[in-house]
């Protein structure tokens, strides 16, 4: 069912106290798609992902995931529905082992039962995590940490993962390998929403792309239809 909607965000407003970070934001991801959201620093990309993941509550608007209304729900209710976040900067748990980090991904009761199969899959996908399963999180290299963060997000058997700046601070060869795995994950039917500074790479993998500027969605389309000029405009406002 390629046309089933995995995620639908509409008319979303988000405030940090008095400051409005998102204005009437919309986003749609079909099931099995990779959707890329690009935009300058501070455009509101992370805010959008954090709101979808339930870390922030929208002041207005709706978020639907596979037909369920999830806006305003806390993360512990959203994770079992099938959305998980790969946070910006990896943010693995430094004083937990690799194994424990992964287990944390299936912390919610409803995701616990399928923990072992999920673990097996992730170890196949990232064999390095299996080798290092008993090491402390903070002893991993940057690339390994990113793999761990992705693996952690996959532990709950999600239908949709939200990846925030997964190439940040990594060597090109590592980025390439991680994007390879991301495709693999996507091929298994998991929808991916990608937020990236690395425009080229994220446009290359995406089925569809959105451009954000100052908390608003300014453009939506197939990656091929987005011109460099439009991108530049989104980034520099000219």
């Amino acid at each position: 069912m390629p046309d089933e909607i995995a995620l639908k965000v509409s008319n979303l407003d988000v405030h940090y106290k008095d400051f409005q970070a998102l204005w009437n934001v919309f986003l749609e991801a079909q099931k099995g798609e990779i959707v890329s959201v690009i935009g300058a620093n501070g455009a509101g990309k992370s805010t959008l992902l954090n709101t979808i993941a339930g870390l922030l509550a929208p002041t207005q608007g709706a978020i639907e995931c596979l037909g369920e209304k999830i806006d305003g729900l806390p993360p512990y209710k959203i994770v079992p529905i099938g959305i998980t976040l790969v946070p910006e900067g990896r943010r693995i748990f430094p004083r937990l082992t690799v194994y424990e980090n992964l287990i944390m991904g299936s912390y919610t009761p409803r995701t616990r039962s399928s923990r072992n199969e999920a673990l097996k899959k992730i170890y196949q996908l990232f064999p390095v995590l299996k080798d290092r399963h008993n090491q402390m999180g903070d002893t991993l290299s940057g690339g390994e940490q990113q793999m761990l963060a992705i693996g952690r997000a996959l532990m709950s058997n999600p239908k949709l993962i939200l990846c925030d700046e997964i190439s940040l601070g990594l060597a090109p060869v590592v980025i390439k390998s991680i994007y390879g795995r991301l495709r693999q994950i996507n091929q298994e039917g998991i929808t991916i929403v990608l937020v990236e500074q690395d425009i080229k790479r994220s446009l290359k993998v995406a089925n569809r792309a959105y451009i954000m500027l100052e908390g608003k969605m300014v453009l939506e389309g197939e990656p091929s239809s987005i011109s460099e000029e439009q991108v530049r405009k989104a980034y520099f406002g000219i």
């Binding site: 806390p74 512990y76 959203i78 943010r91 748990f93 004083r95 709950s156």
Partner: peptide, 17 residues
């Protein structure tokens, strides 16, 4: 485990449920 995760990173542990 959740408590230990909270100790390490409260926001992310919240995101994990």
């Amino acid at each position: 485990l959740g408590l230990m995760a909270m100790r390490d990173d409260e926001d992310v542990s919240e995101a994990m449920g």
